[in-house]
């Protein structure tokens, strides 16, 4: 679970220590040393003891270091450990928990990278307003400032207030020097996501690469001239021939059914009037009129639903297209 290099390091320290201990214990156990330490050569022995004491002191120092560097031994909730744990959670996509760790860490330490990652965590769990605020805190960082500004704009964009987003883009107060094209392009993309009046096509295409221009042009035309059906036209068609309006909006089955049902009831009405069954004549006639009127109404409604479908499909296609390409924004290396 711990960062691999750290485990490796502590492992190496341990191996090293063991080797030293073995070296230390061996001479003591050996008979030569016992003799050396006997009365004949007290001086050498005392020298050895001095050496040993220094060695022991050295080892004691090493062990204390080891005790305190071992994360298990120090406080799990220390600032440094919070940061480590937060980074781990971030790498596991557990962003809410990561954000909590970064928050606790930032109470003690001031660290732009951690604040950036806190903001990024919030951005990734769709808490856009908070994310934008935290990115603002990194605007004047030397290495991260431009990235923070870029992500700030992304947070505003994903937050969905496209009009305000475009205003902020146009004011250029927070514009990152490095990524101004990307942000302005994002401003153009945002026009596909709401109902504002589209900018001039040359202005729009200016920000996109030649390789995607065809696709963007297609979206632009689809947005500007959507293939809508006119509800009034559908209603008039159905008034002339029952069901024709529905066929116009693509509901062929409904159209034929409407024609058949209205026609049959009208025929029954006429037939009954001819046969002198006035009550039945009025009954079927009334029903025919009811269906006739309902179908005119329904044709207009059907055209609207058709249009809603066109809009829905367009929005989905645009969303998938840009989402898949991360809105043509660069990916940030140190977050990987």
């Amino acid at each position: 679970m711990i960062h691999r290099s750290e485990t490796l390091l502590s492992g190496l320290i341990r191996i090293d220590l063991l080797r030293r201990i073995v070296r230390l214990v061996k001479p003591i156990r050996s008979a030569e040393l016992r003799r050396a330490c006997s009365a004949e050569s007290r001086r050498e022995a005392s020298h050895f003891v001095d050496c040993l004491q220094v060695r022991i002191l050295f080892f004691f120092f090493l062990f204390t270091v080891e005790i305190f560097t071992q994360p298990g031994n120090s406080n799990l909730f220390s600032a440094g450990n919070r940061l480590k744990f937060g980074n781990y959670l971030f790498s596991q996509n557990d962003y809410l928990r990561a954000a909590e760790e970064y928050r606790a860490y930032l109470k003690v330490e001031s660290d732009d990278t951690a604040r950036f990652k806190l903001a990024e965590s919030l951005l990734r769990i769709d808490r856009f307003t908070e994310a934008a605020d935290h990115f603002k805190g990194v605007f004047f960082s030397r290495g991260l400032g431009d990235y923070a500004r870029l992500e700030f704009y992304k947070a505003l964009f994903l937050g969905g207030g496209y009009v305000r987003f475009r205003q902020t883009v146009n004011q250029e107060n927070y514009m990152p020097d490095k990524f101004s094209t990307e942000v302005k392009r994002l401003g153009m993309i945002s026009y596909f996501f709401d109902n504002s009046v589209l900018p001039d096509s040359s202005e729009m295409f200016h920000y996109f690469d030649d390789s995607v221009k065809i696709r963007i042009r297609k979206f632009y035309l689809m947005k500007k001239f959507p293939a809508y059906k006119n509800p009034l036209k559908a209603a008039i068609l159905s008034a002339v021939i029952p069901g024709a309006g529905k066929i116009y909006t693509g509901e062929i089955g409904d159209g034929i059914t409407a024609f058949a049902a209205t026609g049959l009831l009208a025929f029954l009405a006429v037939d009954n009037f001819k046969a002198g069954h006035n009550f039945r004549g009025w009954l079927f006639g009334g029903l025919a009129a009811f269906f006739y009127a309902g179908n005119i109404y329904g044709s207009a409604a059907s055209a609207q639903i058709y249009n809603a479908g066109i809009k829905f499909d367009f929005n989905r296609e645009v969303k998938l297209y840009f989402e898949k390409r991360n809105y043509f924004l660069p990916s940030i290396d140190f977050l990987k």
Partner: peptide, 14 residues
């Protein structure tokens, strides 16, 4: 869950 995950993270010898 957060605390169990913290435990796992610092429990290097599992």
């Amino acid at each position: 869950i957060t605390e169990y995950k913290r435990l796992q993270f610092f429990d290097s010898s599992k």
